[in-house]
Computed example of a mutant assay.
Amino acid sequence: MRDRQPARGERRALEFEAFVAGAAGRLLHAATLLTAEVPDANPRARRLLTLALAHTYARWDRLRGEDPYDCARQYLATRFTHTTWHPHGAFGHARTGPRGPLAGLTPRERLVLVLRIYEGVAEEQTAALLGLPAERVHTICERATATVLHPARTASAVRAPAKAAPS
């Protein structure tokens, strides 16, 4: 019995290492989109990823047929939700420096857009994960998509009216 424990632990470590090698990049990209950071400066996203992977590793032996990627993604989303929608959340604070492509969206819009469009999670699953009606998830996703595809013009982007030629 004693010889089995080290072998089981080693197998578990190797399986998890293989999972991380295949999934960490995509999960980090999703976390970076959620936190609205840029890929080269994403400490909040890296923290989210670390927490999600630690949670998945802690549950590794109890997954029993569940997809570990789904487990990590769910934890990433719920942790992001908890930290942005609560008053003392670390990810909802204003950021300085470079901002990612989804920085113009609210945290909820970023979360729905990342889950639905980037991760391909079904509307009903996203709604269940976030505790929202599916219709609300649909509306949030449409609004977020429109905002990203057609950003509002900023004052600096508006062209100054052409000056009339002197007569």
Rank of each mutant, 00 (worst) to 15 (best):
E123I: 11
P133C: 09
T154M: 09
D3V: 02
V38A: 15
I140S: 09
W85Y: 00
A122V: 03
A164G: 04
R59A: 14
N42V: 03
G25H: 03
R159Y: 07
S156K: 09
A13T: 11
R73E: 10
G131Q: 04
E142D: 11
Y57Q: 15
L53T: 12
R2W: 03
T84W: 01
L76D: 04
H29V: 12
A94N: 11
L102G: 05
T145F: 01
A90N: 04
L132Y: 08
V114P: 04
G89A: 10
R99F: 00
P87N: 01
H29T: 15
L149S: 13
Y69N: 00
A162Y: 03
T83L: 10
R73W: 08
R59F: 02
A52F: 03
I117W: 11
G104L: 10
L48M: 05
A58K: 11
V114H: 04
A144K: 07
R64G: 07
E124D: 12
L111Y: 02
P6Q: 08
R59I: 04
R62V: 09
V20I: 07
P166C: 02
T50Y: 09
E123D: 10
V20E: 12
P133H: 15
L132F: 08
A24R: 14
L49E: 09
T35V: 10
D40T: 13
F91A: 08
L14E: 12
R79K: 15
P133F: 06
T126Q: 02
A13G: 06
H55R: 15
H29L: 14
L27K: 01
A162V: 13
P151Q: 09
A21Q: 13
A122D: 13
A155N: 01
T56A: 15
R44H: 14
A21L: 10
E109F: 06
E17N: 12
H82T: 02
G9F: 12
P68H: 06
A103W: 04
F16C: 12
A72W: 07
R26F: 01
D40N: 06
H55P: 00
S156T: 14
R8H: 05
A165M: 12
T145M: 00
Q125G: 00
L28D: 08
P68S: 07
T35E: 10
Y75C: 00
A54V: 06
A77R: 07
Y118K: 02
L130A: 09
G22C: 02
L28S: 05
E123N: 13
D70P: 00
Q125N: 05
L14G: 01
F16E: 11
L63I: 13
Q74C: 12
T78E: 08
L105P: 09
D40F: 11
